[in-house]
């Protein structure tokens, strides 16, 4: 049983090591995502309409290294935050072997999703090669 403190609002692991690192990284990625995701949502849903964001729109947005870098940072942060969050949820409702299998499945899926996102970010063709 992990020792916890109630000094803050949510249980901060007092055992140190991996769980404490995850606790801090959840908050660090949260702050990064507060900026990155809200900016992303504003651009993609308020300034532009997703209905017009065909493949050539994506190619134009990713025509330079700038947005690819920003979106790469967002991908890394969101995969960590979303899957570690799901790990907490799964761990709250399962135990023993079931928990271990589900958490391992989450880690595998996280790796797959990150790889697919990274593949799109790195190999997306130049705007001139995607017809509208």
């Amino acid at each position: 049983m992990a020792r916890i403190t109630r000094a803050g609002s949510s249980a901060r692991p007092m055992t140190g090591g991996f769980e404490l690192a995850v606790w801090y990284l959840m908050r660090l990625t949260a702050l990064a995502l507060f900026v990155l995701v809200l900016a992303h949502f504003t651009i993609v849903h308020l300034i532009y309409d997703p209905a017009v964001q065909r493949a050539d729109w994506i190619a134009a947005r990713w025509s330079g290294a700038g947005w690819r870098t920003v979106d790469g940072l967002m991908l890394a942060a969101v995969v960590f935050h979303a899957f570690m969050g799901m790990r907490t949820v799964v761990s709250d409702y399962t135990k023993g072997g079931t928990r271990m299998v589900l958490v391992m499945a989450l880690y595998l899926l996280a790796f797959l999703i990150f790889a697919m996102g990274a593949m799109a970010l790195i190999t997306f063709p130049d705007a001139t090669q995607v017809p509208s």
Binding site: A55, I58, V89
Partner: peptide, 27 residues
């Protein structure tokens, strides 16, 4: 809301991946 966003992230990475490998189907 966290679980719902996680589910959308799966869909969203899939659709952008699809735009890369088969842009006609994505469109």
């Amino acid at each position: 809301s966290g679980v719902a966003i996680w589910a959308f992230i799966l869909l969203h990475v899939l659709d952008i991946w699809l735009a890369n490998v088969n842009y006609k189907l994505y469109n």
